[in-house]
Write a protein that binds this DNA or RNA. Structure first.
Length: 221
DNA sequence: CGCCAGGGCCTCA
DNA sequence: TGAGGCCATGGC
């Protein structure tokens, strides 16, 4: 089995820097390689935090729509969003789906007065491990690898045993250095979206198909 | 049309 | 503690 470092390197060689986390620039949401190690402004930090909740089980294109609605309505600030009625907030983030739940989640996060630690984030209603880690990693530059549905699917197909969130995260922590956590996660999303898809995986042209331990589990096309 | 998308909570056994 | 239901829009 190819090791995690090699997978990360192979994906980087193939796809290049992914420019995470995507940010609003000139009224559109863009990826830029400079973002990954950028010193973020507080406005950008806020934007990523909101996006981390909006993207729960949701196509990123829909999240972009919601973020741009908030942006156009000058609602992408903590003060504005806090004073806005939950129903109004829900209507603005409608394109992201689950808008009632997400409005509640955003309110809960914004009203939290506790320090931003993993434990405190997890105690907020609607913040689970992935959302907490996304905030810690991409907003606060903490050495935390984000495990998402793509990560689980890809690792499963590569032949790694089915692991719980923290176990899979620990495996990556053990095999990569922290400065690669952001990029590796972004690269896995790229691979998951374009190659290791749930429906019609493109195994024949997959950059890491060869070392895949269970290629039989793919529908080869 | 059905399936899926950068989850997380609740219920019930 | 694990499976299953629920939340919802928009792209393909």
């Amino acid at each position: 089995m190819q090791n995690i470092q090699q997978i990360c390197q192979t994906l980087y060689d193939k796809f290049g820097p992914q420019g995470w986390w995507p940010l609003i620039r000139n009224s559109s949401v863009v990826h830029n390689a400079r973002f990954t190690n950028k010193k973020l402004t507080s406005k950008e930090q806020f934007e990523i935090t909101i996006g981390a909740i909006l993207t729960q089980n949701t196509a990123w294109t829909n999240v972009e729509k919601a973020l741009l609605v908030l942006h156009k309505n000058k609602a992408l600030t903590k003060a504005t969003m806090q004073k806005m009625p939950k129903e109004k907030l829900a209507s603005l983030i409608r394109p992201a789906g689950y808008y009632n739940q997400k409005a509640r989640k955003l309110k809960g996060l914004l009203n939290s007065k506790k320090a931003v630690t993993r434990e405190n984030l997890l105690n907020i209603w609607g913040i689970g491990p992935e959302t907490a880690d996304s905030i810690l990693c991409y907003v606060y530059n903490q050495p935390v690898f984000v495990v998402d549905a793509y990560t689980k699917r890809i690792f499963s197909k590569l032949g790694f045993a089915e692991l719980e969130y923290e176990q899979l995260q620990g495996l990556v922590h053990k095999n990569l250095t922290p400065e690669n956590y952001k990029e590796f996660h972004a690269l896995l999303v790229k691979l998951g979206k374009e190659y290791c898809k749930k429906n019609k995986p493109k195994c024949s042209v997959c950059p890491i198909n060869k070392p895949c331990a269970h290629p039989i589990r793919y529908n080869h096309t």
